[in-house]
C-alpha cells in the first residue's frame, strides 16, 4: 500500500452519494470528496436453486468463477470426467459476466482434453446459453458456433440454468416462455448470473433505468467512466455499467484513464481522456492454439499488434495467453502499470 494511503479493511455496506459518505459493514461512516468505486461484481449463485458453491469439484460440478480454489477443483472434476467420458452440460447466464470468454474457453478446452483422452467420440457435450448468442461480437460468435458444430457440440439458445440437483446430477433450464427442461449430466460447468454487490445495487449510484438497471451496475459515462449523475464519483472494473469489458484487459486500460480524469476533475477541469471500451479475450481453442481477440464497445476488432490477424488460429496467441498474461496481471496488481 503506498505511503499516505489509509487502508480501511471493511466492506462498504451503504453509499450515500448525496451526503458524500459511505458506511462500512463495521458501522464506520466515512466522508469523501471524490469516490472511486471498484468493488467488482457479485456472483449470484443464489439465482440457481439447489446450487452449492461448496459442491464445486464434487459430483461432477464445476465453476471457474468463485476463485482459484474453485478453478482448481473444476479442473480436477473436469479431468476425472474426461477420462471416463459421458455427458457434459456447459452454461452461460443472461446477465453481463466477467470474462465472458471463460465459459467458451472452458468448453473448447473440455473438447480438446476429451479428444486427447479418446473419450470425445463416445461422449456428449451440450452448451446452454441464456442469450441468443454465445459471444457478443457477431463475427466471433459465428466462428465459435462453426467450431462447435464441427465438434458436434450443439447449442441451446435462450435456455437459462435455474436449478440444479447436485446429488441427482440433473440441471433444469428455463426458456423465455417459462417452459422448463431437465438435462442429466455427468459434468456441468455452472456460470452464475452476475450483478452489482448489494450495497451498490441498492444505492442511488446504480443505473435507475435501461439495460444495466436490472443488475444494479454503476451508472458511469462509458467514455469518461465518471458517474453520470454524481460528478465526483468514478468507476473502475467489473462494477461499471458499460457495454462489454468486464475483463482484466479493460481494467489495465481504464485505470490510468480514470486516474487522469479524476486528477482533471480535482483540478477543476473536465475529464480529458476518453475510453473506447477496449477489452481483450485470448480465446483458447485447444492446447497450443488461440485467437488473440481485442475489441471496443462497438465490437470492432482493434488489434494492438497490427500485423497479427485476430481471427487466425495462432500458437503465438496461445503462448501469450499462457506465458505472458500472468506477468501482466502481476505488474497491474503491483500498481506499476
Amino acid at each position: 500500500m503506498p505511503a499516505g494511503v489509509k487502508w480501511v479493511r471493511e466492506m462498504v455496506a451503504e453509499y450515500n452519494p448525496d451526503a458524500n459518505t459511505i458506511v462500512t459493514d463495521a458501522g464506520q461512516r466515512l466522508q469523501y470528496d471524490y469516490l472511486v468505486v471498484a468493488t467488482g461484481c457479485h456472483l449470484d449463485f443464489a439465482q440457481i436453486e439447489g446450487m452449492d458453491v461448496n459442491a464445486i469439484g464434487r459430483n461432477g460440478v464445476g465453476s471457474v468463477y468463485p476463485g482459484p480454489k474453485a478453478a482448481n477443483e473444476t479442473w480436477r472434476s473436469m479431468d476425472a470426467f474426461r477420462q471416463r467420458g459421458g455427458k457434459a452440460v456447459m452454461t452461460l447466464p443472461g446477465t453481463p459476466i466477467k470474462c465472458a470468454g471463460a465459459p467458451l474457453k472452458t468448453t473448447f478446452m473440455l473438447i480438446d482434453r476429451m479428444r486427447q483422452s479418446g473419450t470425445l467420440e463416445r461422449s456428449e457435450i451440450v452448451f446452454h446459453s441464456a442469450l441468443g448468442v454465445v459471444f457478443g461480437v457477431p463475427t466471433l460468435n459465428e466462428m465459435i458456433l462453426e467450431r462447435w458444430a464441427e465438434a458436434n457440440v450443439p447449442v441451446v439458445f435462450s435456455s437459462k440454468l435455474v436449478a440444479i440437483d447436485i446429488s441427482g446430477h440433473k440441471a433444469t433450464f428455463e426458456n423465455p416462455d417459462g417452459e422448463r427442461t431437465v438435462e442429466d449430466y455427468d459434468f456441468i460447468h455452472v456460470v452464475p448470473p452476475m450483478r452489482a454487490p448489494d450495497a451498490l445495487f441498492n444505492s442511488p449510484l446504480a443505473w435507475q433505468e435501461g439495460p444495466m438497471a436490472a443488475g444494479g451496475w454503476l451508472e458511469v459515462d462509458r467514455e469518461t467512466l465518471r458517474h453520470r449523475r454524481y460528478p465526483n464519483v468514478f468507476g473502475v472494473g467489473d462494477i461499471n455499467g458499460t457495454p462489454r469489458g468486464k475483463t482484466a484487459a479493460t481494467v489495465k486500460q481504464s485505470v490510468p484513464l480514470v486516474v487522469s480524469n479524476l486528477i482533471d476533475v480535482i483540478a477543476g477541469r473536465d475529464p480529458s481522456r476518453r475510453f473506447n471500451g477496449y477489452t481483450s479475450c485470448p480465446m483458447i481453442l485447444r492446447e497450443g492454439s488461440a485467437w488473440l481477440i481485442e475489441f471496443d464497445y462497438d465490437g470492432k476488432l482493434i488489434p494492438s499488434l497490427p500485423l497479427v490477424d485476430p481471427l487466425q488460429d495462432s500458437w503465438f496467441a496461445w503462448l501469450m495467453k499462457v506465458q505472458l498474461l500472468k506477468p501482466a496481471y502481476m505488474a497491474v496488481a503491483k500498481g506499476r502499470v
Partner: peptide, 15 residues
C-alpha cells in the same frame, strides 16, 4: 511448453 510443432500454421507463430 505443452504444445506441438504442428500447432504453428501462421507466419507470426514461426517468427
Amino acid at each position: 511448453i505443452d504444445s506441438k510443432l504442428s500447432d504453428l500454421n501462421y507466419w507470426v507463430d514461426w517468427a
